[in-house]
Each structure stands twice: as structure tokens, then as C-alpha cells.
Design a binder for these strands. Sequence first.
DNA 1: CATGAATGAGCATTCATTCAT
DNA 2: TATGAATGAATGCTCATTCAT
Lengths: 211, 211, 211, 211
Amino acid sequence: MSQSVEKQSGKTRIQREKREQILQAALEVFAAHGFRGSTLDQIADAAKMSKPNLLYYYSRKEDIHQTLIARLMDTWLAPLKTLNANGEPVEEICAYINRKLEMARDFPRESRLFANEILQGAPHIIEMIEGELKTLVDEKAKVIEGWMDEGQLNSCDPRHLLFAIWATTQHYADFDVQVRAVLGTDKGDESRFEDAKEFLENLFCKGLKVR
Amino acid sequence: MSQSVEKQSGKTRIQREKREQILQAALEVFAAHGFRGSTLDQIADAAKMSKPNLLYYYSRKEDIHQTLIARLMDTWLAPLKTLNANGEPVEEICAYINRKLEMARDFPRESRLFANEILQGAPHIIEMIEGELKTLVDEKAKVIEGWMDEGQLNSCDPRHLLFAIWATTQHYADFDVQVRAVLGTDKGDESRFEDAKEFLENLFCKGLKVR
Amino acid sequence: MSQSVEKQSGKTRIQREKREQILQAALEVFAAHGFRGSTLDQIADAAKMSKPNLLYYYSRKEDIHQTLIARLMDTWLAPLKTLNANGEPVEEICAYINRKLEMARDFPRESRLFANEILQGAPHIIEMIEGELKTLVDEKAKVIEGWMDEGQLNSCDPRHLLFAIWATTQHYADFDVQVRAVLGTDKGDESRFEDAKEFLENLFCKGLKVR
Amino acid sequence: MSQSVEKQSGKTRIQREKREQILQAALEVFAAHGFRGSTLDQIADAAKMSKPNLLYYYSRKEDIHQTLIARLMDTWLAPLKTLNANGEPVEEICAYINRKLEMARDFPRESRLFANEILQGAPHIIEMIEGELKTLVDEKAKVIEGWMDEGQLNSCDPRHLLFAIWATTQHYADFDVQVRAVLGTDKGDESRFEDAKEFLENLFCKGLKVR
DNA sequence: CATGAATGAGCATTCATTCAT
DNA sequence: TATGAATGAATGCTCATTCAT
């Protein structure tokens, strides 16, 4: 079936590939220099196409950015969505932290794109944040509060808990340069994230666990 | 006496005031839009002077930025410097967290300026980070490790501990829009930071305290 | 065949034409106002294109100037290069003077561009002058000295002889306004240069000829 | 009497000195960079005064230039004026050449200022050239023609003779960089001009002398 | 007289976007 | 689709000139 879809979209498939190529290039560039700091020339170069050709697929710089941001939001909310109200509380939260940390490791550019956006006042995603994100957080905060009320978790403000999880995990992507500099060059990527994982599990899960 | 001091710095005082005015305006703008995203027009507008007049005081956009960054680094390193090896470990760390949190509350633009800079690969401060900051962190990490070895603190990686403190506190400045949106508008500035303080003290100090 | 050559350089030909158009315009402007005294607006106007379009072909003002200067040097050294050691001495020198005079007549803008450059201390061509030009002059000076030693020419300092030839011929291009003003408007271009030719042949060749 | 004049111009004398200081500085700068290529800052620096102060004495950049040019013209015409119709022809012309060569040696900046002006089409002095200079040249050309008619000089076009004298002598000031480069660094200022003097006397006077 | 401060006009250059092919 | 060419609107910065003291 996916076969037939691909068949019937002959031109479209190529289009999709090119668009993907552009988005990857733009992600790289936007994450590194911010929206205004990035130029179409840089993106076109990174995407290995000419600037007019690039504009054939996305007619405005803004469009590329919007597309990236929109796609990012899905990825971004996914981990929290999977936090399971019926799971074992500490395990759930630990798993969430790990998922976020893996994202920081595997999608640092996305993380930086998001950070850039928020730093500038979230002009493009403020609605999504005040809407979808807030709703999701409200829901999951209730789940966590439920666990606390049941005595399964030490009690604390669940929203600030989420902030802390976001901050600490994304830090390894957003402040990467600083992290590397402070740890020194002898530490490889692997061990850096493993150490972080251990540290964060210890920090969050020991503190949350009811004894 | 302060009178005579002011007298003898006559012209200089005006210059200093104007320069300060410019720096404040630039801090606002740079923090919100990053270096490349900010224009001299924006800064001049914010400083309520003409662009050439602004350039009379700082002859290059870069100079303004550099001045801000240099000044920032002093402010930025100060709290960690005061971490006292002879103090009571948990108290010291709690105090550090509070200081950092106060800075996030009182100097959010500085925090965002710093975040912007790091996100873009720290082009202007990489040396300071690999030099002064790393040295300071190494020193304080040893202090913390000492406390852990003496059994005064639960043991963990002290550098990742610092990362976590930085991340969680600065988050309230850098991701301010998101924090506000998630918490809802009914929460005022005061309670937001008070809640954060309580949460972070709980998170870090309970976990660190040896029982 | 020239057809096929033109075909294979399709787009390039247009580019070359535009670039040529720009260079001609720039030559006019630079020769008249010097490098700093010339603006891209003037050049763009003279080339009948918009300023950004001009910058599409030469991305810096400096580049245009460099290109003109580089091309000029070739033209400039050519006449002296053809001075033939095996020719009849007085004839050779007379021919050289005539060639230089023709250049002053046919390429006055190039001459003025060169004069402008030298007047300002030759910032862009000092190397070529201390290198290529000096070497060429040394070589030809020896040729002339040879002729003098053989008694075929009255003896004099050959380098100062070259200076005198350069000065007197280029004068008709560089100081054109003054020459015209002094001679009065009734003298046409033709007769001005014919008179000059006669005068200079007389001056240099009578004096040089051994009797 | 000159004493009383100086007395009564108390302030004026200081003014004159400052103005002179400015003119010297401006001459240096204008000669090296042309009118448009020179900035008031450069001139103010060279004159060791502040830009507004400089503008107190000459309220426009143009004024300074005009003053220099006007003064230059007097100096410039002086040598030709002293060509004496009653003197010995060859001696007179030789003396003229020497005077011009001395000027090139002693006032190279004035020579370059003049050259710059003429190269740009003599916008500020075209009237003087078409008027005073042309009249003077006409007069002296007649003197020279008279000598030729009397058989005291070999006959040639007296105006082109003057051009040649101007060109060859001024060349040592205007094309100084090139002259030095071609002659090599081992030749000092003195010998350069002595060689030139000998060469030019030989060139012009041998050719003119009737045998 | 002297100078720090201020500014409008201009200038080289960049950049997103459009046009024509 | 793809691209070379073209352009208006910035953008950082310079500079002659003015203002105020």
C-alpha cells in the first residue's frame, strides 16, 4: 500500500525528498545562527542547491522555519505524551528523563532551534505553547499529583519538576559547547551522556522515591 | 568628596551615562534577538539616540556586544566564586542555588544574552569558557568532591551537579515565556520564583544531604 | 568554429559582456575621480545597471579596481617589451615614443588610472613596479647602454631617458585639460598629437643621434 | 612698517599661524589621497587640532582646498614668469628647467596636489588655467619663438617644449614612487635629482643649441 | 578659541525575493 | 524544475558639518 502511495506521487516523492533536504540544511543553519542570523545562501549551500531553486520549494525563508518549528513541536511533545498514568511512578519519570536525554543527544539541533525560538519570545509558537503544551502539561501534572497524593512519590510542584527535567536534559544539547569545555576533551560523547544519565536518575529519582 | 570626584570627571560622567544608556538598550535588544538579529537602529531607538550618535560612543556594533559580554562574564562567575570550602556543604550549595535563582530573576536579559552566545557556539567567549570558567569549575568541583569524600554530601559527579544547577536556575530566565505560559497568568513573578526556590532546594539539597 | 566557441561559452559570454561594460564604466569613473573619490553609484550609472546588479558581477568595489589595474599593467609594459635589441637604435627608440604617444591618445583613461595610482603611492601595484617593471627596465636599460657603448647613441642615463619618455608622452593624457587649454580650442585632437609626435621625435632623436 | 602690521594684528598673527598649520597638514593629506579621498579627521590629526577647531578656521573642507590651490598657482607660475626675454636663450631655458626641478624636489606635495587637480579635470582651477596660465604661456611662447626666429635656438613648437619641461621635471615629484623603485634604493635623494638635472640639461639644451 | 556631542546625507555591501528563461 | 540575473530594502558604518558650551 505504501508502495502504491509512492507510485502515485511520482513527482511528489522527489519533491518530498528535496524538501527534506532543505529542511535538514535549514535545521543545521537555524540551530547554529538563529532565524535572523541565518541566510538563504547558507541554507542553499548546505542543501546543495541554488537559492532560486530552494525558493521554488519554500517560497519564503519564514516558511522553512515554520515548517521546522511545526514538525519540531510534535517531536518535542511526544516523550511527555507517553508518560503513562498507569505505570510505576518512579520508573515512568526515569524513563521520561532518559527519553529527553536521548533526544538531547540525538537531536541537538532541534533542541537548539527550540531554545532559540523561546529565547526570542517564542514568536512563532507561542500559541502552541499556551495551547497544546499547556494542556498536556496540565494533564500530566495531574497524573503526577495523583501519584503524590497516593504516596507513591514524594510531593513537590509537578510543573517545576517538569521544568527541571526539561532544563537539565536540554542543557546537554543547548549548552553543549560549555559542557564540553568544562568536562575537557578527554571525555567522549558516549561517556558524557552516560554520566549525565546516571547523575540525573540519581538526582530526580532518589529524591522522588518515597522511603 | 563624592562631589569633587564627580566634578573632576565632568565630561566623563556624561559619557559614562550615555554609554550605560546604550549598553542597557543593547542588552535588551541583543538578549531578545541575538547579535545578528539585532540592528543598530533597534538599539539606537531603544537608547533614544540617533544611530550616528550611538556610533560616536561605540564605533562598532561588535564593540557594544563585546562590552556587554565582558561585563557579563564577571557577573556570571561571581556566585560560584563565593562558594566557600570552609562553609557547611549543604548550606553552601543551597546558597549558591539561591544566588543563581536571584540572578535569573533580577538579570534575565543577561542570562539570555549568555544563552544566545552559547547556543551559537560561544564565538566571543569560548576562550573565557575554556580558560577562566573551566579553571573555576575544576577548583570548585574539587571542593565539592572533598565534601563528598568526607561524607558530608552524598556522592555524585560534581560537574554534572553544577550543570544541573545552572540549567534549572537559568531556565527561569531563558525559557521565561514557556514557564509563564505553562504556569498560567494567575501566578505572579514573586510566587513563581518562590515556588522555584522551594522546589530546587528540595530537589538538590534533600538529595545531597547525607542521612 | 568561432560559433562553437561562442556556443560553449553561452552564459559566460553574457557575463563577460556585462563585466566588460562594468569595467569600461569603472575605468571612466576611477580615471576621473580616483578610487576613493569614485562611488559605486557613479559606476553603476555609467554602466547602466543597478548597484546590486553591478555587485552581482564584482562583489567589491576593490575587485573592480584590481581587475582594471591588473589589466592595465599588461597594456602598460607591452610597448617597452617590444624594444628590440637587434633593431636600429634611434629607430627603436623613436618607435617606442610613438607607441607610447599613441597609447596616450587612444587610452587616456588608462593612463590617468595609472597616474592616480602612482600619485597615491601605488598601494595596489607597488609590488609589480618593484618587481616586473624594475626587471624590465633593468633589462632594457642594458640594451640602451649597449648601444651607447657601441657609439650608436649619444650617451646618457638610460633610466632617466625612459622617465623622460614616459613623462612627456603620458603628459598628453594625464594633463590633457591643461594641454587643451594652453593650446586653445582651435587645435583638434589630431593635430595636437601630430605636433607632439614631431616635437618629441625631434627632442629625443636628434639629441640621441650621433653625428 | 611690517612691524606695525604685525603689532596691529595681534590675534590675527596667531590665526595666521593656525591657518598655516592647517594648510600644511591639508597639503600633506590632499597630495597623498586626493580631495575626496582625504577626510577632515586626517587633516585635523595631522594639524594636531580637533575637527571642530579646524572648522573654526576654515568652515568647509572645500575652503581649505581652494586656499591651497590658489596659493599653489602663484608658486606654480613664478618660475615661468622669470624667464627673461633679454637673457641668453639657452641659459634662460636651462635655468627654468633647474628651477622647475628644484620645485619638484622641494615641493613634491604641491606638485602632486596640482597633478591630482588636473587629473580630475581641474574643476577648481580651470579658469585660472584658461586665463592666467594660457596668457603667460602665450607671452613666453612668443619670447621663445622670437629667439628661434633670430636663430638663437633651434626651432620647435615652444608650447610643446614647455609641456615637455613641465612633464619631465614634475615627473620626479608626481611619479616619485615609481622613480625610486626603478632606480633602486641605493640611490639617495641628492644623486637622483643631480642625475636628473644633468640628463635634462643635456636633453633640452643640447637639442636647442644651434650649432 | 576650543571641544565634546550630535546628526543628515551618503556609501559599500548584504539579503530576501522576483524575473526570465 | 532549475538557475543566472536583477533589484528594493535594509544594514553597518563614514563623514562633513552643526550645535552647545
